[in-house]
Design a protein around this nucleic acid. Sequence first.
DNA 1: CTCAGTTGGTTGAAGCTACAACTAAGACCT
DNA 2: AGGTCTTAGTTGTAGCTTCAACCAACTGAG
Lengths: 166, 166
Amino acid sequence: MQTEWLSDEERVAWVRLAAVLELLPGVLDTQLRRDAELTHFEYFLLAMLSEAPDRTLRMTSLAQRTHATLPRLSHVVRRLEDRGLVRRFPCPQDGRATNAQLTDAGWAKVVDTAPGHVTNVRHHVIDALGADQVTQLSEITEAILARIDPDGVVMSPQRGHPSGRR
Amino acid sequence: MQTEWLSDEERVAWVRLAAVLELLPGVLDTQLRRDAELTHFEYFLLAMLSEAPDRTLRMTSLAQRTHATLPRLSHVVRRLEDRGLVRRFPCPQDGRATNAQLTDAGWAKVVDTAPGHVTNVRHHVIDALGADQVTQLSEITEAILARIDPDGVVMSPQRGHPSGRR
DNA sequence: CTCAGTTGGTTGAAGCTACAACTAAGACCT
DNA sequence: AGGTCTTAGTTGTAGCTTCAACCAACTGAG
């Protein structure tokens, strides 16, 4: 069985995507670190909580939405808890589960931070593209996520957790 | 001065791109770690060296091509050197500079590893897209890189350094 | 009821990256 | 020559992620 190499066009697209993968996280982190002492992952986590009912989510659910492993999430939430941005308490319905809830300070942090972050995203990504390219990017990333995101959390965020899950 | 928020379409595109940013590196690292005990960054670094004349590049040049900071590169190259995949020696023309050269073992590693890696990239990214989407992805990432890659190394790799070197 | 298996989450250690500080060599100016 | 500035790279440390191990609580079969 022999390898099917990439064509020139495919190779260029891949190399550029790989470059974006390498550089964009740094761009996001730098702005958020400077303006809010937050990594992009931490900001995104807080943002997910801020949109959840009662600003509360179970760790597993939060892990899915942020595309993180549970150990990683556990460490990050502990640090955010130390900073007073998040509160953690056991889930009444399921003794195994832990709920993470955004505190008022956490909510204020998101509100304060969002404008600068959105401006940054706009400046480095969205405004670099035409309207048609934004649509294309949406479709392309959707197709890629279908391959790399096992549970497809991103693609059907509406599914929510109606009791039974799945 | 007030924030210009993202439209629904823009927000979806951004959230999906952010998800790819979060998930794709793990997909690449996992395969390479398992099959070659290499991170994607290390593989890419070796691949850049393998394509260079005499399989040699100055640290600064290698840093540009891999989108890495010099400290990061220095650490990684030291580890690769310990493993015998790369050799380091002072540049004769410039006493400050260091050259990194791929060893025979390093070359063999790239040759052995490339097929599995390309197959992985194909499976998770390229084959998820139509031919037109590959072109679109190439253009979109080019536009984004123009904003986030200060020196535009990715976009004009032919530029080389004028005078000396080669 | 009970025990095996699964699910949800935490923890500790190892490894990688970022940042800051530092060294050394070349370039420039006079 | 001499002094200053810049460039090239290394090193140490702190912080974050990953991986493996672990524990507690739920579930289901008998």
